[in-house]
Design a protein around this nucleic acid. Structure first.
Length: 175
DNA sequence: AGATTGATCCAT
DNA sequence: TGGATCAATCTG
């Protein structure tokens, strides 16, 4: 059973989507080559008050995508050298997204390397993951039980004050 | 621990 | 318009 995730999957509470994404497959089509890899690590960025989220400083040219409807890709450049891939969640108007941090594929552990391996760059920013033929997500029937999920604080957000310790990072155990 | 690297954001 | 900042990674 293989089914592309639709808007109903993304239009949900971000913490729930972040956990549901574990075990799903990220599919990237480059020319005639198709790469599919299981998602094993995610992080949730929730709402305008989450200081770790780019959206916490309000709607800007870069972050407006996070305020948009669920099911779009949010791709941005960080530290001048690496791209990070997020998927937008929740209702149109509410800024939230899930960062895809690692895949069970080659050396794609870490959001920067992941995007390098899959050739994800700014051209894929704002694409609709439910419709386009270059990048999308699939349910291949794998079920991840809550007991297989490990929670921990998010990476690289020490500047976020009280928000930095929230256990909003999700990893499949034994990876 | 330090260097890298450049788009983005906001204010000296 | 300029300077500080950064959801990272590599090298030592």
């Amino acid at each position: 059973m293989t089914k592309r995730l639709g808007k109903d999957f993304y239009e949900n509470k971000t913490l729930k989507v972040a956990q549901n994404l574990l075990g799903k497959f990220l599919v990237r089509k480059i020319g005639n080559r198709v790469i599919a890899a299981k998602i094993i690590e995610t992080e949730a960025y929730c709402g305008p008050k989450d200081r770790a989220s780019h959206a916490s400083r309000g709607r800007t040219e870069r972050t407006k995508i996070m305020f948009g409807p669920a099911g779009q890709a949010y791709v941005y450049l960080i530290y001048g050298m690496y791209y990070c891939l997020n998927v937008v969640t929740e209702k149109d108007g509410y800024p939230a997204a899930v960062l895809i941090r690692a895949l069970e594929y080659s050396k794609a552990d870490g959001p920067g390397k992941l995007c390098r391996e899959l050739k994800i760059d700014k051209k894929l920013n704002a694409v609709n993951l439910t419709k386009n033929d270059k990048l999308w997500l699939e349910d291949r029937g794998e079920v991840i039980k809550p007991s297989q999920i490990e929670r921990s604080p998010r990476i690289g957000v020490d500047y976020a004050g009280e928000w930095k310790d929230k256990p909003w990072r999700f990893v499949i155990k034994s990876n």
